Computed example of a mutant assay.
Amino acid sequence: MENSFKVPQLLLRGALGITFLTPVLDRLGILGPIGTGNIEWGNWDNFINYTSTLMPYLSRPMVDVMGGIATFSEFTIAVLLIIGFKTKYAAIGSSLLTFTFILFMTTSVGIQKPINFGVFTASAASLLLSYIPIYKWSIDNLLHKSN
């Protein structure tokens, strides 16, 4: 069967990877301070303050933990998607993580925020990516060829 998804899967992996990586870099302050360009948080404290608005029923220490888990997950998923390693599982994880974001954002700040941030699109695109049979130009493909 001809793999007609060669370029689309590569672009989708890259787009989703960058979509996860840039907010991580933002909240770590690597992209600059808040108020510059399109910086949303600019530092960890601003990110955790925002996260606490999404989880108002959790204590601040628990919000810190949840923010850390989300950040670690986003970074891991970003790297896996960009390099194309365990792509199917990274895409499923991406879809589940973004669906979780949709639930928290919608119940706490309304449906417009996840729409504005493209979270619905990222969740659906991740699910679609998980169904692509071959990830050309990926570590997965290299490992598959060597077997």
Score class of each variant (00 low, 15 high):
G93Y: 08
L143A: 12
I48E: 07
S95K: 04
M66I: 13
F99A: 15
G68L: 05
I82P: 01
S59A: 09
F99P: 02
D45S: 15
L31V: 12
L81S: 07
K6I: 14
L16G: 03
W137C: 06
S4H: 13
L97N: 02
G42D: 09
H144A: 14
T106R: 03
T107N: 14
L81Y: 02
L103W: 08
N141P: 00
A125Q: 03
L143S: 08
A78D: 06
P8D: 03
S123N: 04
T19F: 15
N49D: 11
I48G: 02
N116G: 11
A124S: 08
T76N: 02
T100M: 09
G42S: 09
L16H: 03
V119K: 01
P8Q: 03
R27A: 10
K88D: 01
V119W: 06
N46H: 12
I83K: 00
G67W: 02
L103Y: 11
E2R: 09
L54Y: 04
L58Y: 06
T19L: 11
Q112M: 13
V79D: 05
A70Q: 02
I39P: 06
F85V: 08
S73I: 00
D64T: 02
D26F: 11
A78P: 05
T98G: 01
I34L: 15
L80V: 04
S130E: 02
I92C: 04
P133W: 09
I69H: 09
S138A: 07
N147I: 11
T19H: 12
L103E: 00
L21R: 05
K113L: 13
G29T: 12
I18S: 05
I18E: 02
N3Y: 08
S130G: 01
N38K: 13
E2G: 03
V79Q: 03
V109F: 00
V119E: 01
M62L: 14
F104V: 06
E40V: 14
N3V: 01
L58K: 07
S108C: 07
W137H: 07
L127S: 08
L12Q: 03
F20Y: 14
V79I: 15
T98E: 03
Y135G: 01
L80H: 04
L10V: 12
G42F: 11
N43T: 12
G110F: 08
L12K: 03
E40N: 12
I132Q: 05
I139D: 05
S130L: 03
T36W: 11
I39W: 10
Y135W: 05
T36C: 00
F47Q: 10
L129K: 01
G93F: 05
K86A: 11
K88F: 02
S52M: 14
L54Q: 04
M66V: 13
A124K: 02
L128I: 15
L10Q: 01
T107S: 10
F72M: 12
K113H: 11
N3M: 05
A15S: 14
G29F: 14
D64H: 12
I115E: 09
K88A: 04
V79C: 05
L54S: 00
S108T: 10
N49A: 15
A91F: 07
D26C: 09
G35S: 07
S95T: 08
T19P: 01
Y135N: 00
T71C: 10
T87F: 02
S4T: 13
S138Y: 02
F75E: 01
S123F: 01
